[in-house]
Amino acid sequence: MKNIFINRPVITFLFITFALSSIFYFLIIHTGKLRSGFDMYVTGLMWTPGISALITSLILGRKISELGWQWGKTKYQLRSYLVPLLYTFIAYIIIWSFGWGGFYNEEFVSQVATSFGWTQLPSGLIIVLYFIIMGIFGMPFYSATAMGEEIGWRGFLVPELFKNFNYTITSLIVGIIWAVWHFPILIFADYNSGAPYWYSLSCFTLMVISISFVFTWFRLKSNSLWTGVILHASHNLFIQSIFTPLTKDTGNTKYFFNEFGIVLPVVCGCFAIYFWRNRSKLISTTE
């Protein structure tokens, strides 16, 4: 088993990724806002792993087609869409049930009604319609940015590490790198929910490492990076555009909801355990 620190492809990829990312770290941190530059800065940041994977492949003389562009079995793509919906739904049901956040945020629902021209409809119907429309038509938008990361993390890094490590170690290493890659904008910009940065950082890191086990399982099982794209897009869609904005702040909600509160990481940790227990379904020579 090779050591990650002497794995030339991995080191090359990580060096290029963090070098390119530093440009967008600076731009985002300079403004202090993740959404600055009409979202161009964060979009550029999310595409740095993908661009780095392409550059690394060229340096190594590898074909771009080796990154996992094949679609694979549709059942895995469908499950990739549904799994984030499931763990997000469970997390927010817990949050709403215990009063750590309220359902629903009247101000947000009012904004949705005004934006879509649904001001004459009852709130319950507005929420249902918004959920359906965003759940369908929001995916292409979120996939466009998620693809930038996934070409790198799941297209290149996961299969490269899996050549020398088992599923567990591969998931753990990718999860740690993936989490650390977010640290600069979490600590020095506004990529958080308002809780102390050490708390947000801890919750976010636990969540990312946990879902890394899910993402890695689907990537290896399907042999397709598209499961990663769909998982990532679905995750961002349901958390950022549906469940989080629908949640009303009840005082300490910032400590419980979103990617920076404690509930979602715990639920994702349970999902990680489930997929880890099903690791035997993956082909591996090291586990």
Rank of each mutant, 00 (worst) to 15 (best):
Y167S: 09
F162C: 04
G175F: 05
T170K: 07
L186F: 05
P196S: 01
T168Y: 08
T170I: 11
F156E: 00
S193F: 03
A189D: 08
Y191H: 13
F183W: 15
S171R: 04
P196T: 00
V180D: 11
L172T: 15
D190K: 07
L186W: 06
Y197Q: 01
V174G: 03
L186H: 11
G175D: 02
H182Y: 13
W181T: 09
I185F: 13
G155C: 04
G194E: 06
W178T: 02
D190C: 11
G194N: 08
G194D: 08
G194H: 07
G194K: 07
D190N: 15
W178I: 04
W198G: 00
A195F: 01
L172A: 14
N166F: 07
L161H: 06
G175P: 04
N166K: 10
L161I: 11
L161V: 13
F183S: 13
F165Y: 15
L186C: 08
L186E: 15
F156V: 03
P184M: 12
G175S: 05
T168A: 10
I187Q: 04
N166S: 14
F162K: 14
T168L: 13
F162T: 03
P159S: 12
L161A: 10
S193T: 14
S171M: 08
T168F: 12
A179C: 10
I169P: 00
H182Q: 14
V180C: 10
H182D: 14
G194F: 03
S193R: 03
W198E: 02
I173F: 14
F183I: 10
D190Q: 11
P184I: 15
T168G: 03
Y191K: 03
I185Q: 12
Y191L: 14
F156G: 01
I176C: 09
F162S: 14
L157R: 09
K163I: 11
T168V: 13
N166I: 06
F188N: 08
V180N: 08
I187N: 03
N192Y: 04
L172V: 13
T170N: 08
W153R: 00
W153L: 02
I176R: 07
Y197W: 12
E160F: 07
E160L: 07
A189T: 12
F183P: 09
Y167E: 13
A189W: 06
